[in-house]
Design a protein around this nucleic acid. Structure first.
Lengths: 210, 210
DNA sequence: GTCTATATTTCGATAGAC
DNA sequence: GTCTATCGAAATATAGAC
């Protein structure tokens, strides 16, 4: 199924020291992690600015103030969620190298990304629906933001050394992948990830293959 | 060029009685219209919730309170912008009829939509980046919201009477169009609308044609 | 139509007890 | 780790003069 189980990866911002990081007994899920899960849902449904800390706390059965034991600020919660996506696609992108990208390479990249995106759909949706709020954070720390997947994709398809027709196809291919995951996420309920992946790859080939 | 002149249509929510509706002398642009123009920019850049009425007023050189002469509330401003898109694509969608949609029909629909979207890019971007805020308005008046273009498209590609492979292609085709206008809007600076339209149609044909 | 001034609410964040 | 209580800021919205 395509609509569930998004929290496969329990590690969150590795290296960070969260409360309960030492207690390795798994008798209770980290509160920090539960906060992030709830925040992910609410930020995506109502938007970051449209969600108050009171709402997050209420859903967890705790008070607003308790949140501040786990996070320094509201923005920190968003940042922690953002970090989950920061490593995303990095390895795939590195393989592109520095030379102008070909349609063939682009297709291989997106093939990789489809696999990585499927289990991260929720986080991707969060980013798609909170671009403005996330840009504020970016502007404060725009050092490594050029490494961020969305910006990298944009940069590549803006390369004037690539023929315009190819750039349009590359852009369209990105649209194919994202529409399959976002718009399609609601339309294709009950379709297995594998089936969707296969179908998307066929479309990608028609867009990029020649 | 693809990045400018979005306010071709001076009529705003026709039938509505705004201030200055009677003064037909064109010596000064409607303040109401100027408010909407500024709000469109700010809501898109910073998000609806991330934009205060103070900011809108400041950019116009008036005070916050003056806005309330032209609009009953902040939500009313967003609603007025939303209405610009409400008629959008209605005629094209009506031609689809009630039977299951074919790839051929879908292609013709999107061909139509590309033309209508190009001059409305800014408003479409507003919707893409403020889904959460707009949903709040929708939920209050969800009567005619099924008529709204995005929801109609979603409904069609969810039709289980259409083969899954075709639905994926139809969804992908929507992604092609939107990526060309949104992601492409920044990447294809200096490309004429006509050229972009031609290239997009070729890709559409590869996705839908067979 | 636009202003000054203010009412009202809500939010993010802190202090300090337990 | 979570609570109660509260602060200060900023936002939407209103009242009434000009």
């Amino acid at each position: 199924m395509i609509q569930n189980q998004m929290e496969a990866d329990p590690s969150d911002a590795p290296g960070e020291v969260g409360p309960g990081a030492g207690t390795s007994d798994g008798h209770r899920a980290d509160t920090r992690q539960r906060i992030l899960d709830v925040a992910l849902d609410l930020f995506t449904e109502q938007g970051y600015d449209g969600t108050s800390l009171r709402q997050i706390a209420e859903r967890l059965g705790i008070t607003k103030a308790a949140l501040y034991y786990h996070f320094q600020s509201k923005e920190d919660i968003l940042l922690a969620l953002h970090m989950r996506l920061h490593e995303f696609g990095r390895e795939s992108l590195r393989q592109l190298g520095d030379e102008p990208v070909t349609l063939k390479l682009w297709g291989e990249l997106l093939d990789d990304l489809i696999d990585q995106m499927l289990p991260q759909r929720k986080i991707l949706l969060l980013h798609q629906r909170n671009e403005a709020a996330l840009e504020k954070i970016h502007s404060r720390d725009h050092a490594a933001e050029n490494e961020f997947i969305f910006n990298r994709l944009r940069t590549v398809v803006s390369d004037p050394n690539i023929a315009l027709g190819d750039r349009v196809r590359m852009t369209a291919a990105v649209g194919v992948v994202f529409s399959g995951l976002f718009l399609g996420g609601e339309a294709f309920v009950g379709v297995s990830d594998e089936e969707l992946r296969t179908l998307l790859r066929q479309v990608l080939h028609d867009v990029l293959g020649r």
